[in-house]
Design a protein around this nucleic acid. Sequence first.
DNA 1: TATTGTTATACTCTATAACTATA
DNA 2: TATAGTTATAGAGTATAACAATA
Lengths: 140, 140
Amino acid sequence: MAPTDDPAVEAWQLLWRLMQANKPRFMALAQEMGLAPMQLHALRLIEPGDGVPMSSLAGKLFCDNSNVTGIVDRLEAQGLVQRRPAEHDRRVKTLVITDTGTKLRGEVERRMSVPPPPLAGLSEEDAVALRDILSRALDV
Amino acid sequence: MAPTDDPAVEAWQLLWRLMQANKPRFMALAQEMGLAPMQLHALRLIEPGDGVPMSSLAGKLFCDNSNVTGIVDRLEAQGLVQRRPAEHDRRVKTLVITDTGTKLRGEVERRMSVPPPPLAGLSEEDAVALRDILSRALDV
DNA sequence: TATTGTTATACTCTATAACTATA
DNA sequence: TATAGTTATAGAGTATAACAATA
């Protein structure tokens, strides 16, 4: 680790390392589910019930609308989501997750919610402290 | 946040949210530097001085060797790194960062080391605790 | 006029398989 | 035979600009 005495900087470096270490796990899950990484990200953002406008999904994925068209095309081709015209504004298309999509998404959420080994190995006391600090950081 | 009483699970969800929130900052930095995201990642992994074998870089980027060929092609075309045959094994090519690359990488490191707003806003006490907990988690 | 989503285009990233040059 | 890197190929993600439908 680069030498610094700022605890926030050091925490940030460690956090980055932790997320890097988790990457293979995420990639393996995507492959197992038969989804490309971005498709997996997108599926997680389409909760059962509410219809998500395409542009809203683009915002959450930090990419362009034109990009979402292709991602949703592929999810739709796999029968995981459906495009549906919005009632209030016929320019808008909302995304609704299908039953198949809901099942797959549930499994994804279950697997992704499992903390990676470094976190799972923390003492109860550390885990609680970590959760509380992050809650304060994110103001939730 | 999904309802759970496991502090490690909740910490993990918060961590994920924190990293998601940081994504636009990373993308903006990459764009500002004139590098595609993977090129930026790769450049960070090539420290001045030591020659990194291509396959080693592939491992760190969690992608295939054939993939690294293109990424390094583009970094080399921009004069940021150089391929150099390894002495001990002439099949291996090591990557050496150029002076231009070193300058750009230094600026990237400076910018990336700045903690994102949620972390920067923590109290000194919380920041220290967070650093210490993550150090224990990652065993460093 | 402005906005949503699509299309066209060009480029980057990705893995697999076949190839080369070494070992 | 085995390994490091390249090439060829095909698919996926990316942004920009032009477009159609709607507001």
